[in-house]
Design a binder for these strands. Structure first.
Lengths: 116, 116
DNA sequence: GAATGTAGATACCATTTGGATACTATTGCT
DNA sequence: AGCAATAGTATCCAAATGGTATCTACATTC
């Protein structure tokens, strides 16, 4: 519970700002990118997104869920299973993320470039 | 002078991360957006980017300059005149920013939507 | 001589964000 | 009984980010 106040995009007026608030942040783009091919389990994402801590991954996923960019599906099993998937709205962002990653790859120089 | 260390994208390996480091942050997208039609003076940008302080605008512009996304042209006049412009690399980002702003506008609902 | 305008710089503070570490619950496996 | 696996929480701390207020230089204008 984050105090109170401007947690959800408050009164943004600028569409560019608005969009950046939804996909900005350190890891959001990368999470969306790794959901590009469909369903992923929590643990899978954690292994894919090297350098992210459990706390951050959870936090980012929750924000994306609240933002209606991913869905979270909990299976009542033990050990637990939770699957994440892009919503239609989230999928609409994919072209952008993918193009951006291509731009990034180009800028980095092909040697160092890694899909992710 | 920001301490020392990982100021310039350190050793990012992920192209998505890399791209977000270059255009992420609270105002970068919007600054790029407002440079979409060519040259802008510092003061113009400040008036266009409502809600940004002089400090932040300067900081963002300097980062974009270091990142080779904008050029800074100082005229030795009094009162001073400084003009900013996108580089070719920066211009390559425009399609994405514009698409993103369209996505944002769509998401916001047309009523509230404002170009910027 | 004082005020105005431009494009900042600088110091200081508050908030936000991110990270390290340890901990939980439950079942199956050995 | 003890351990592994999954999907997290909780707590505390460090760093990054953003904001406020004040200051500068210099020519022009009042």
């Amino acid at each position: 519970m984050k105090k109170t106040g401007k947690n959800i995009h408050s009164e943004t007026i600028c569409a560019v700002d608005y969009a950046f608030q939804r996909i900005g942040g350190k890891h959001k783009g990368r999470v969306i990118y790794h959901l590009r091919n469909g369903v992923r389990r929590y643990g899978e994402l954690r292994r894919l997104l090297t350098g992210i801590t459990a706390k951050m991954l959870t936090q980012v996923l929750r924000e994306l869920e609240q933002d209606n960019l991913v869905t979270r599906h909990v299976y009542l099993e033990v050990p637990p299973r939770v699957e994440y998937q892009l919503t239609d709205t989230g999928r609409e962002l994919l072209p952008f993320i993918i193009l951006l990653s291509e731009w990034g790859r180009k800028q980095m120089g092909m040697e160092t470039a890694v899909s992710c």
